[in-house]
Design a protein around this nucleic acid. Structure first.
Length: 564
RNA sequence: UGCCCGAUAGUGUAACGGUAGCACGAGUGACUCUGAAUCACUUAGUCUAGGUUCAAAUCCUAGUCGGGCAACCA
């Protein structure tokens, strides 16, 4: 029984229920997802998206999408579009139009003037370094700026001139007048506005003063009537200031609640590190199938359903933990197992000749498309004298637990016949290049009239009818489970899993895979789930391995590497 | 060294003063025309020390450990 079935909800939802019960927000539920459009969304954002949009859906409320765009030097319209695409792909609908903090710049400016007038804000003419010095440290109190006691008139005039563009970047800043001796660093006269003579991607040159996050976020929530402003743990300290601005302004009061961001093993999530992977050319782009970005996962073949189920299962708490990527992969397989049609594909081909099968003959065999879904029907696969099987499915000198093909051994070729290996052909270097086999015509369809059993069933593809393709095998980005802890001064990218991408050419797919569309997903039997990559063309198909099937044999092999 | 937050099996979580559950992982077995899926079983936990109470994972105090806060980033 999972948490949902047991009726328990996370602490954020509990808060919403408590507020609904007490009538705190008159039963309204308004949440928001507030990304800064300076990068692409990743699976950590998906957790937040599922939380915010999920709560709105579950409690009859709405969720806004708001671009938190207060730093013109970093933000870009392309990210705005990408963010919308990703949320849409995940299957969520924001309420109304996309909102922008930058649309509130006029209001924010007026509120700044209001605080100046009330003697709660002042223009500081210190240099950036002086301000830093004056702030004090974790253990030393801050000291007042020499400009702290300017008159309201002077401050009003200075702020107007800041806004009018009379000063250069960094020359002046508007600060809230709170308490330089506060134990809470955030309250030591935080900066409200800084000068940036930069073009804003939406506001153009209208402004040369831009509000800081703290002077923007709470008020934006307030303007939009947000009830539950849900953010990650690192903003806990900021809540004190969030509340201060709103109360001093005397405006509607939303409630901020913080939860732990997602940590995932075998990958990195920080924007900085992801950016470096792309910039250093270590990844093909933000949509490299190895990236934990939504775009990367999407291209890799993940389904939105799997990601949402994962987000549901990890829960929401204030504990900063690291979730094993195995849970994500479990959710993926669970979803893909139900929905994917099965196909046969040989990734590393080994030629097999069925000596007693007539040359030039071909027959059609019926194969089940999806044993989990009868309505998926069947297809026919061609069987011929010359076939390919997986190199891994044959061992000349098999260890005890190896059930697959070996000299003298009979196995079942899936949906076809029992086949016995009679001879092994090697090249000059001793490498096995071909298997001479015989089949039992009595076993057509896969079972023997005499009731004899075989130890295993392997997949195969007709040599004549095979579709040749490139297949990209993906694995975890890092071998270490927690690469985030690798020190910043270390060359952390050296820890990348050298086997995170293996590109295979000349893979042999069954005939029916000749016609596919980008994004199509299949299970290649006994191998894993694969999807058609963006790079795929009709004469040059490219498949990505989304995730392998669970594999008992691989585990056995790991335990005793001598085996195979 | 100041302030804020946190701590339950390997991992993620539930239990809201009254029998510590669930999921993933790992292990074993059953079944099997995918060494998949499915099913069954096993494994393993309340950070420490005090206190309150008939009763504490839960409340209180102290400590330990971990995270966050000293951008004109968000």
């Amino acid at each position: 029984m999972n948490d949902q079935e047991s009726g328990s909800v996370d602490f954020v939802r509990q808060k919403v229920e408590t507020d609904n019960a007490s009538g705190k927000f008159d039963g309204r539920v308004v949440t928001r997802f507030p990304p800064e459009p300076n990068g692409f969304l990743h699976i950590g954002h998906a957790k937040s998206i599922c939380l915010n949009f999920g709560i709105a859906e579950e409690y009859g409320g709405v969720c806004h999408l708001r671009m938190d765009d207060t730093d013109p030097t970093k933000e870009d319209v392309n990210f705005v579009q990408a963010i919308q695409d990703d949320i849409d792909w995940l299957g969520f609908k924001w309420h109304g139009e996309v909102r922008y903090a930058s649309d509130y710049f006029d209001q924010l400016h007026d509120w700044a003037v209001q605080l100046i007038t009330a003697g709660k804000a002042y223009v500081d003419s210190q240099t950036i370094e002086e301000i830093r010095q004056g702030r004090g440290t974790l253990t030393e109190l801050g000291i007042d700026s020499p400009y702290r006691e300017r008159t309201v008139e002077e401050n009003l005039d200075l702020f107007a001139r800041m806004r009018a563009g009379e000063f250069a970047d960094g020359e002046q800043v508007l600060r809230a007048k709170i308490d330089m001796e506060s134990k809470h660093l955030i309250m030591r006269d935080p900066i409200m506005y800084r000068i940036r003579h930069a073009e804003h991607y939406r506001q153009g040159d209208d402004w040369c003063v831009y509000p800081m996050y703290d002077f923007t976020h709470g008020q934006s929530d307030s303007i939009e009537g947000v009830t539950h402003s849900i953010c990650t743990l690192e903003f806990e300290n900021n809540r004190r200031l969030y509340d201060w601005y709103i109360r001093e302004l005397g405006i509607y009061v939303p409630e901020q609640t913080e939860f732990a961001r997602l940590g995932l093993t075998h990958t990195v999530m920080s924007k900085r590190r992801l950016l470096q992977l792309v910039n250093d050319g270590l990844m093909s782009g933000w949509d490299d199938p190895r990236m934990p970005t939504i775009r990367g996962l999407r291209r890799r073949g993940y389904t939105p359903e799997a990601i949402r189920e994962f987000c549901r299962r990890i829960g929401v708490t204030k504990f900063d933990g690291v979730t094993e990527i195995a849970l994500l992969e479990h959710c993926l397989r669970d979803d893909l197992n139900r929905r994917s049609q099965r196909r046969m594909a040989v990734l590393k081909p080994l030629k097999v000749v069925i000596e007693n099968y007539p040359e030039g003959e071909m027959e059609e065999l019926e194969a089940i498309n999806n044993p989990e879904d009868e309505s998926a029907g069947t297809r026919s696969v061609p069987f011929t004298r010359e076939l390919f099987i997986e190199r891994d499915d044959f061992l000349e000198d098999p260890p005890k637990k190896f059930y697959r093909l070996a000299p003298g051994r009979e196995v079942r070729f899936r949906y076809a016949y029992f086949v016995t290996c009679r001879d092994v052909v090697k090249d000059d270097s001793g490498e096995v290049i071909e298997l001479r086999c015989t089949y039992d015509p009595q076993t057509r369809g896969g079972s023997a009239p005499d009731g004899r059993k075989v130890k295993s069933t392997i997949h195969w593809v007709s040599a004549e009818q095979a579709v040749t393709a490139e297949v990209r095998l993906y694995d975890h980005l890092f071998l270490e489970s927690d690469p985030a802890t690798i020190a910043a001064d270390e060359e952390w990218t050296r820890h990348l899993n050298p086997g995170s991408l293996e590109t295979l050419q000349g893979c042999c797919l069954e005939r029916s895979l000749g016609e596919t569309d980008v994004g199509d997903r299949f299970q290649f039997e006994r191998l894993g789930y694969f999807c058609v990559d963006d790079d795929s063309t009709s004469d040059r198909p490219v498949f990505n391995r989304t995730v392998t099937l669970r594999d008992q044999w691989a585990k056995l092999k790991k335990q005793s590497p001598t085996a195979g």
